[in-house]
Simulated assay, not measured.
Amino acid sequence: MSGPADLLDLDDQFTDAERATRDEIRAFVDSIRPMIPEWYEKAHFPVEIMPELGRLGALGMIYDGYGCPGRGAVEYGLAAMELEAGDSGLRTAVSVQGSLAMSAIHKFGSAAQKSELLPQMAAGELIGCFGLTEPNAGSDPSSMTTFARRDGDDWVLNGSKRWIGLATLAGIAIIWAQTDDGVRGFVVPTDAPGFLATPIEPKLSMRASVQCEIRLAEIRLPASAQLPEARGLRAPFSCLNEARYGIAWGVLGAARDSYLTALEYAQGRMQFNRPIASFQLTQAKLADMAVKITQGQLVALRLGRLKERDQLQGHQISLGKLSNTRDAIEIAREARTVLGGNGVSAEYSPLRHANNLESVRTYEGTDEVHTLVLGRHITGLESFR
């Protein structure tokens, strides 16, 4: 029988393995949920949970071999949704590690890079970050100024990156740089001389997460540090699409948690001698939230099944990221209104989710970028330049 967060009985659309993974990740998130408000308040990411996430198979979940879990796309989506029901910072950490850093190595790395790094990363023993965005190159990464020059057999990197998740916690950084032969990717040890990562503080969003600025000053790397199969911007873009796919699922977790928090509160909050859940305007808010969550789940599930058949296209990922994130923010904000003045208390999650989702709405492609991706697909006309 369907519950308030599954109006279409979608649960029977998932396999036993998918449901088992979802339930296991949900139980883990529930076990750490009491600490999340404090992590958010103190701007702290609990790096100690990474090995546990590795044990749960959440890191690099969809990749095969080299110690990676080799799970399905829908299974990963459900995991992302449960993580973000706790906090966007949890899902972001898994996304940075698995969908970005591990993805780059798995797709474009050498056999030696894969064998050395991926098993440690899948286990959560080695943390990676992904350096593409720069202070003056966000939506237009082709304008990046970080440059890697040849010096004999070595590479020498100079430049800067900004809004790089996990950078101060990472052991390696995937750095994208211009070269004389176009954009290339490099595996950079974060203890290399000339590498400096600094947390960006203070923040009003994604506080239980770490985003950093990276400075790269004359970092000397051997030829083996280059990702040999990564050529041009298509390489990092393919990694971004992996992250965007996870976002389309993840934000539904924040939306669902906000909605269920508002529902529980409305059923217990008494005004005028009746629960506020009995009032028409409150029921209208709750019904609208449930409809949007249901629609978002259908979109995410369709994306997942297409991805499992290797048929998922870029504009479809843009649709999911744009629509589900936009709706999730509206749900979190509306849920806060059901809570009244209590909604600004850290005791309740919707306003925290709403603040976090402002960052999610921006990273891995802004609303504007994804809208124009859809516009280009619909019209066949380029509008970026």
Rank of each mutant, 00 (worst) to 15 (best):
T145N: 08
V299M: 09
D30T: 14
F195N: 03
R244M: 14
F130C: 01
L351T: 12
H315L: 09
P193K: 04
G246L: 03
P141A: 00
A254Q: 13
E38F: 10
D181S: 13
G60M: 04
G124K: 00
R149K: 14
Y259F: 15
Q226E: 15
I32V: 15
E364H: 13
A192K: 11
P350C: 01
R207P: 01
R256P: 04
N355I: 08
L233G: 04
L118Q: 00
R274H: 10
P34Y: 01
Q311A: 15
M50C: 02
E134K: 05
K114Y: 02
I127G: 02
A248N: 02
V183S: 05
V29E: 06
D6Y: 07
E334N: 13
G128R: 00
P199R: 11
A80V: 11
D9P: 02
L374H: 03
C212V: 01
D23Y: 06
T21M: 15
M144E: 05
L301K: 06
K321A: 14
G296Y: 00
P193H: 05
S224M: 06
L56I: 04
P193A: 05
G67C: 04
A73P: 13
G341N: 14
E18N: 06
D87E: 15
L319D: 09
D16E: 15
Q113I: 07
Q311R: 13
M81E: 15
A73H: 13
D154C: 10
L169F: 12
V210S: 10
R71V: 07
E229W: 12
I164G: 02
L301F: 12
M102H: 05
A208H: 03
T282K: 02
G320E: 01
R207V: 01
Q283I: 07
E18W: 04
G77F: 00
L7T: 08
V188A: 07
L240G: 10
L59F: 03
P350A: 02
A111R: 12
A20W: 12
L319H: 12
S143P: 00
F108H: 07
C239M: 09
G340T: 07
C212E: 02
L286K: 02
R336N: 12
D191E: 13
E213P: 01
Y245E: 06
L59H: 04
L374D: 01
A335K: 03
V338N: 02
S99M: 15
G304R: 01
R231E: 11
E134W: 04
S95P: 06
A230V: 07
R361C: 12
I317Q: 01
V344H: 14
R376T: 12
S88G: 15
T282P: 00
P46N: 07
L260E: 10
A346T: 12
P189Y: 03
G138Y: 14
W249G: 03
P4I: 11
E334H: 09
S99P: 07
R150E: 14
S110M: 06
G131H: 05
